[in-house]
């Protein structure tokens, strides 16, 4: 049976999380079809057709699918789902929004944020903020699953030669409408895809002090993240939050600056390859997971760090 992967895309470009989701689909095995739903998605569909391992691209181009409103996109996916053994979406805010709606319409349970594929019906997923890993088995006719991107290495963006087929008979449900969007602008790499992440916590004291982290991040080519404390205190916008309720990252290097290391924060970054903690409190829990710890005043350490790299 074939697997349907729902593409994540923004501003006319295929998002990286789609590549990790295709990788998860390859582990399950079977033909991989990618659905691109949206408005004006030609470029995204063409990009998806070139992705390694993709056999077919389904393009649903209609104003009803703009901004992927779940009330309109979920019935579209349901109308296609019966031909597939699995429906996968990346566990982005988009995927998390529409996919449970799809699962309920199909009358099956959804499996959220898998980090490993054991077999075509058995998967591993973290629970309790990553403090336990559950192995779950699905008996559903169509297995509906969101994929945690950091659990799978992305497939190549080139190498595929899939055909593109137009789909989408379902029109707007008429119960919801997009009003506006306010996106944070940044020249730095995207947080969930960055190789290096520099994160600041309450210890940064104010939003202005984040400029020290930005300077260090720019030297390292890193993305900048934050703990909930820093977001709640208004230092930085919420889309920078790393943790159980924010973004899950697993970069090569994670530098935690002035972050104590609460369970909820660790849930979002403890799969990073190398963790560095910079904190003045040597008892801070972050040191229990850090590969390299440096106890001291971050306002002295960060500028020095920037000088040396």
């Amino acid at each position: 049976m074939a697997i349907l992967v729902i593409a994540e895309h923004e501003n006319g470009a295929l998002a990286g999380a789609t590549l990790n989701t295709v990788a998860a689909a390859q582990k399950i095995g079977g033909d991989i079809h990618v659905l691109v739903a949206g408005q004006g998605i030609d470029a995204v569909a063409q990009a998806a057709a070139k992705v390694a391992g993709v056999a077919k691209v389904l393009a649903a181009d209609d104003a009803a699918y703009a901004h992927q409103l779940p009330e309109n996109v979920a019935p579209l996916i349901v109308s296609l789902a019966s031909g597939y053994s699995h429906v996968l979406a990346p566990a982005t805010t988009n995927g998390k929004n529409f996919l449970p709606r799809v699962a309920a319409l199909l009358d099956v349970d959804q499996i959220s944020e898998i980090i490993a594929v054991e077999s075509a019906d058995t998967f591993k997923r973290p629970i309790y903020a990553g403090n336990a890993i559950a192995t779950v088995q699905s008996s559903a006719a169509v297995k509906v699953i969101t994929v945690r991107a950091t659990g799978f290495d992305p497939v190549a963006t080139e190498g595929g030669a899939a055909s593109v087929e137009a789909v989408g008979e379902v029109k707007s449900a008429g119960v919801s409408a997009f009003v506006s969007e306010e996106l944070a602008k940044s020249d730095r790499p995207e947080l969930t895809a960055a190789k290096i992440v520099v994160s600041g916590g309450r210890g940064m004291q104010n939003g202005d002090n984040f400029k020290h982290l930005y300077a260090l991040a720019d030297k390292l080519g890193a993305a900048v993240g934050a703990s909930r404390a820093a977001v709640d205190a208004g230092f930085v916008p919420n889309d920078m939050q790393v943790g159980q309720t924010g973004k899950i990252v697993a970069p090569q290097l994670y530098i935690a600056v002035g972050i104590s290391g609460a369970i909820q924060h660790l849930a979002g970054m403890k799969d990073s390859k190398v963790i560095v903690a910079i904190n003045k409190d040597e008892e801070a829990p972050i040191f229990q997971v850090a590969d390299y710890g440096l106890v001291g005043d971050l306002f002295e350490i960060i500028p020095q760090f920037e000088q040396l790299v």
């Binding site: 923004e10 901004h67 409103l69 982005t92 805010t93 988009n94 919801s176 409408a177 997009f178 009003v179 506006s180 969007e181 306010e182 996106l183 944070a184 969930t192 916008p237 889309d239 973004k247």
Partner: peptide, 8 residues
């Protein structure tokens, strides 16, 4: 949302 805020 991942990139910021969206109003519906």
């Amino acid at each position: 949302i991942d990139g910021g805020l969206q109003t519906v």
